[in-house]
């Protein structure tokens, strides 16, 4: 009973198409009949209470989680069980994690150079040029030789964004990128994400930053209990939520009495 049923016929310019995706952990159903089509350049914000399956959903897209039913296509590649398609999809899809997951034993620069050199076969010089350019873009190039632990949380997350961008992905997934940050560092990360959105990157963001959702999202999707409950453009979503659970959630998250 998903509002997303309308996506049964995916638009021609769809970057990501999930159809009837279901996932179980043993007896517990983590995702129920997920249907979602994301067009090229579209920005989606996924929100919902904890345990509602938001992270699980985006982690299925780059196959950090497997799923038992349904189909996921990324840029025309149907995600299968074989290393080849999984690898193809992961080269197109960048991911930013809640806890940054930078490699602590490498400098910031090396963090950004590793994957292009190992997976795309870039030369050291190419990888370094790309890395430096993207570190400059997230305004952290003067820290390139430092180790991750020498940076603040906000800086680390910006490095993580640059590291993902070094792979020249077509889609970026953000899994609660600001949840582990001190409040004063949230803005620098959101600003980086807004910049990315303005350049036309296709993005799916799991976040509770509703200001960010209002500003950049094309659609806000609300999940509960492993299913998509409601999806709407942000102005409708915030001013006129249709489902009781959405209203309750928004009330809690926006601290309205």
């Amino acid at each position: 009973m998903s509002d997303a049923a309308a996506t049964g016929a995916a638009p021609a310019d769809a970057m990501i198409v999930m159809s009837h995706v279901e996932k179980w952990y043993g007896d517990f159903q983590a995702l129920t009949d997920i249907n979602l089509a994301v067009r090229k350049g579209e920005k989606i914000v996924l929100c919902g209470p904890s345990g509602s399956g938001k992270s699980t959903l985006i982690r299925c897209i780059n196959r950090l989680e497997d799923y038992q039913k349904g189909e996921i296509r990324v840029g025309g590649t149907r995600l299968g069980d074989d290393a080849r398609t999984i690898d193809a999809v992961r080269r197109e899809v960048g991911m930013v994690f809640q806890h940054f997951n930078l490699f602590p034993h490498m400098s910031v620069l090396r963090n950004c150079m590793l994957a292009p050199m190992r997976s795309l076969g870039a030369s050291r010089a190419e990888a370094e040029a790309t890395a430096r350019a993207l570190l400059e873009r997230v305004r952290i190039h003067e820290q390139a030789e430092k180790y991750p632990a020498q940076l603040s949380g906000g800086q680390q997350q910006r490095v993580a964004i640059a590291r993902a961008l070094c792979m020249k992905p077509k889609v970026m997934l953000f899994d609660e990128p600001t949840s582990a940050l001190d409040p004063e560092m949230v803005k620098e990360v959101l600003d980086t994400m807004i910049g990315l959105a303005e350049e036309g990157m296709t993005m799916i963001c799991v976040t509770h930053e509703m200001g960010f959702a209002r500003q950049v999202a094309d659609r806000v999707i609300f999940m509960a209990g492993g299913a998509i409950v409601e999806e709407a453009p942000p102005q409708d979503f915030f001013s006129n939520p249709r489902h009781e659970r959405t209203r309750k959630f928004l009330g809690e998250i926006l601290h309205q009495p």
Partner: peptide, 21 residues
């Protein structure tokens, strides 16, 4: 675990994941 996940998300294959990360 996040180290393995980050390496996978960057499409690093098994050998690079182990050797480098």
């Amino acid at each position: 675990r996040g180290q393995t996940e980050a390496a996978k998300a960057l499409s690093l294959h098994y050998v690079a994941r182990m050797k480098d990360v």
